[in-house]
Amino acid sequence: MTVMTILQAVTAALDQELKRDKAVLVMGEDVGRNGGVFRATDGLWKKYGGKRVVDTPLCESGIVATAIGMAVVGLKPVCEIQFSGFIYDAFEHLASHAARVRHRSMGAFSCPLVVRSPYGGGIRALEHHSESMESIYVHTPGLKVVIPSTPYDAKGLLAAAIRDPDPVVFLEPKRIYRSVKQEVPDDDFVLPLGKAKVVQSGSQVTVVSYGATMKTVREAVIGLDVSCELIDLRTLWPLDEATLLDSVRKTGRCVVVHEAARTLGMGAEVVAVINEKAIYDLESPVVRVTGYDTPIPYYQLENNYIPSKERIKDAVNRVLKG
């Protein structure tokens, strides 16, 4: 066991998979000699060489599109997109090709690649460095979408994403890259995709979140005189409905928290699933605590946009009264 940050856990997972499988390669802008702008690939270029830890030309679509060609031929590319706000250039290849190769060929070909990218606000960055656009990938049939919130999950889920036979978008909560530390096994391990985690058991309110806001949720419920059950979705697609519904049927109350914009966000899907399958178990309407339906503001106001502990506490109290 080693105590590590989420960032170090990402590096550990990449190291583990590069070591385990010769078909795995890491590619992206500045991931080689420089070790990535957040240092997520630190040391890997030295260890594995420039053919497996590849500094690419500056072109997001080129990175993902060439990775598709590699993946169908038998390699397992792990692409880094420096900031998720720059993925749009590559989106056509993710949505029109990576996500559809298996279905379009009725299983003759597959596209086992991973696109890693830091997402979310709260680091006082320039415009386009703070987006939470996870819903667009969830809404793209054929992609799996994973967002860890702890170092342990980051290592186990990234390893699983790399071994998965289908394309996975792996979004990393950069706000808490270095602020959450945890013991992580040094050994080779994977965690299943498509499984949410009950982080804390409780009986009165289910609070659902994922990624960076999961940390805020954990902190918000400390000292609250309410028994909260906390669910970390971990994989946004395929969504683990069973864990979610079991909890909501028990507590009868639910708050869902994310920093992505509200409309058609993951919260909307959570509410819809509860509505279709557990509405009669509800004691009060589900409440969403989310980013607003605006571009995320520049850093002066970003903390007014990203769900705060106060907004989460307020929501928990509201569902209890409702």
């Binding site: 053919k51 060609g69 590699m70 031929v73 390699l75 090709h97």
Partner: peptide, 22 residues
């Protein structure tokens, strides 16, 4: 499989040729 979005298959060929080389 045939690619419908015009020319989008071009960099896939690059990736495939790259993989074959690697």
């Amino acid at each position: 499989p045939i690619a419908i979005p015009v020319g989008s298959q071009t960099p896939h060929c690059t990736g495939a040729g790259w993989a074959l080389k690697l």
